[in-house]
Design a protein around this nucleic acid. Sequence first.
DNA 1: ATCAAGATTACCT
DNA 2: GGTAATCTTGATA
Length: 189
Amino acid sequence: MRDAVTVAKDLLGKIFVYNTPGQVLAARIVEVEAYKGSVDEAAHSFSGVSERNEVMFRTGGFLYVYFIYGVHFCCNVVTGKEGIGDACLIRGMEPLEGIDIFSKNRFNRNDLSEKEIIMLLNGPGKICRGFNIDKRLNGIDLTGNTIYILNADKIKKSEIVTVKRVGISKSKDLPWRFYIKDNKYISKK
DNA sequence: ATCAAGATTACCT
DNA sequence: GGTAATCTTGATA
């Protein structure tokens, strides 16, 4: 239950785990963006509670999943206090465990080239496709044992790159996109 | 009721 | 570099 910008930077390097019935899927978070309902016109929560963004207004520790462009799901970690509307969009990940499942979900085959493995989870829509995260998981409690985030070595301040967010047209100058310096699994340069 | 835009990606030239 | 895919929301009538 903290500021989305603080949490965004803290999330870098942590391990996102999805315990599916047959298999554990895990990946390292390498790129995130912060969205704040109070001041940020680009945030879904900026103009108040709706059916779609209700989860974003919950207390920190829930997963907010939304559908965009009629095609893709994106997943966010809710960070604020009840009623605030702060969350972090997960934009890039390094696959760790369950690469065969990620491959199947993304490309419907195995034995990917090194280049293709880099492309498995390097974008918000790709992450949801790889993990098979959709509406079903909107609002899941991240303190439970299905999806959760493991602590890992904290990323040094000097290794965190801070830039403007991508793919938005409002509040575009806020420097709330963060990624791990020189990491291969970033969505865009 | 109709419409445009959207926290994107894959595939085409 | 351009654009289709095609669901949801919020604005305008």
